[in-house]
Amino acid sequence: MSGDPDLTAFLEPTQLTTATRQPLPRRKLSRATTAFLILLRIYVFIAIPIVAYAFIHAMRASP
């Protein structure tokens, strides 16, 4: 495709792909936030096997 630099002026500077390729700085998570994230991770690790168990149980129960 032929380049048209004027057209790209319709994009915001932060929209250009060269700008979005630059990573944002890492954010420091507070202890409370980290604890919340860990708690929800544990929740998922417990919940998914329960769903798998329920699914297998239902399969075995059905004729």
Partner: peptide, 21 residues
């Protein structure tokens, strides 16, 4: 608009930007 120089060097990115523009 401060156009980063890479934009004019990378045809793939140029297409993506131009279509969006």
């Amino acid at each position: 608009i401060s156009r980063p120089p890479l934009l004019l060097l990378d045809p793939c990115r140029e297409r993506e930007d131009l279509l969006r523009a």
